[in-house]
Design a protein around this nucleic acid. Structure first.
Lengths: 236, 236
DNA sequence: TCTCGGTCGAGAACACTGTTCTTGACAGTG
DNA sequence: CACTGTCAAGAACAGTGTTCTCGACCGAGA
């Protein structure tokens, strides 16, 4: 059983969280390059930056904590969008998740860049087993699985997964329930890939002036992706 | 008419290029954070870094030059893959372009991150009109257009572009030839988006241990994307 | 040929950065 | 009350990008 936290531990934990929150604000405002230990120290009421190192081993550790938080925030947004579900419109559910993820990404572009942009130089991947970084692909997989169970998964074209691709995904596919066909998992992975591709292009500015209404363009792109990959609005 | 370059101008231009090449090597090896003006100066035989500023206004300008070069290298790789074409297998042509782009991306991950990862803090987008950054989407658009002209473009599902998405892409779609249907352009954009999404996930390490053979997984993903978006191996 | 103007590299300097170490003060505990 | 461990502060080190000034040199015009 966990010991009762002493007052010292309590105030320490709270201050640790306060530092992280200030860091996140500084990241959101000035970008990762503007996250300076000295200005962050002043932000939380410290005169010198050295005291900061009693709470985080270094700047990279702080960034790693922000990465984990960003993954969780993104996962929360996606989960919340998938939650209110009428049980029939699986295509609409997919689109709702896409919109929620996009909403979070455009509202927090720097945090999105932290998790899905160029990897941070000194980043230490803490995803030993099932980190928060897998929440989104797992959710999308669940979406497809529930759609299939409801008869609302009808992939277009020939969904067969060739042997080479099957072997490349063996460690993942072998862990799936036997009633889940391979192409279902591949479709979910493709959906995940397509979603993040569309978001990266928009958030990182690569889309440029191709569209005047990124939200509407994104909506259509994800709707088309969902139907092409087999999600339908009404079960058969 | 351009003046004949004086010897001074010649050696200056060559040294400017030499600096950029050394910077690219340093970027490829140590990442963008390891690109230091002082070590770069020593790399090209300069004792002090200050002389570097006679050739580039600053580090950001140097990075911008590297970005333009990376876009061009990526465009060259894609063009070279699309060039030898038998005129029938448009799906195979698309896959060849995908493989070439992936080959370049995994061989130059830091340069790929420079163009399709988190935007550099002080990078000034030089895409006034048609920068090298649009070479890849334009090439993919040409692929789809030529496939359609050859009767090898048969999109699956309902390819109709709803009014909202049509409006969002109006400045792009209005500039297209009248025989190119809207959904053809949207399919090309989707293909571009899907391709870069798959690459970002792999190159940036987000894909993690989902697959043991990224190339085979990528192949299948892009093959499926191509066929779903309408590219066929044999014209009707 | 000599001299001048312009270009070049070197070096110091400034304002930063992350990080480490030492010092002194404070709070909670025995 | 005294002690012990935790804390913030400050100096210091090794870096960073950038600017400025200073000689030196090279090439072209008189």
């Amino acid at each position: 059983m966990p010991k009762a936290p002493t007052p010292r531990e309590r105030v320490r934990a709270e201050f640790t969280r306060e530092i992280k929150d200030a860091a996140r604000r500084q990241l959101a405002e000035h970008g990762p390059a503007g996250l300076s230990m000295r200005t962050l120290a002043k932000e939380v009421g410290l005169v010198s930056a050295s005291a900061l190192y009693r709470y985080y081993p270094g700047r990279d550790a702080l960034l790693t904590a922000l990465i984990a938080d960003a993954y969780d925030a993104l996962g929360d947004a996606a989960d919340a969008a998938a939650d209110p579900f009428d049980g029939t419109d699986h295509a609409g559910r997919w689109l709702a998740v896409c919109r929620a993820v996009r909403g979070w990404a455009v509202a927090h572009p720097h945090e999105f860049a932290l998790v899905h942009g160029s990897p941070v130089p000194g980043y230490t991947a803490p995803e030993d087993t099932t980190g928060p970084g897998r929440r989104l692909p797992l959710l999308i997989g669940r979406l497809f699985q529930e759609a299939a169970a409801a008869g609302a998964y009808r992939p277009l074209g020939d969904p067969a997964v060739p042997a080479a691709a099957r072997a490349a995904l063996a460690p993942l596919l072998d862990r799936m329930p036997p009633d889940a066909p391979d192409h279902l998992v591949v479709s979910a992975l493709a959906a995940w890939s397509d979603l993040l591709g569309a978001l990266a292009l928009e958030v990182f500015g690569t889309l440029g002036r191709f569209t005047t209404d990124p939200a509407a363009y994104f909506d259509h792109l994800m709707h088309r992706t969902g139907t092409l990959l087999g999600l339908t609005a009404r079960p058969a």
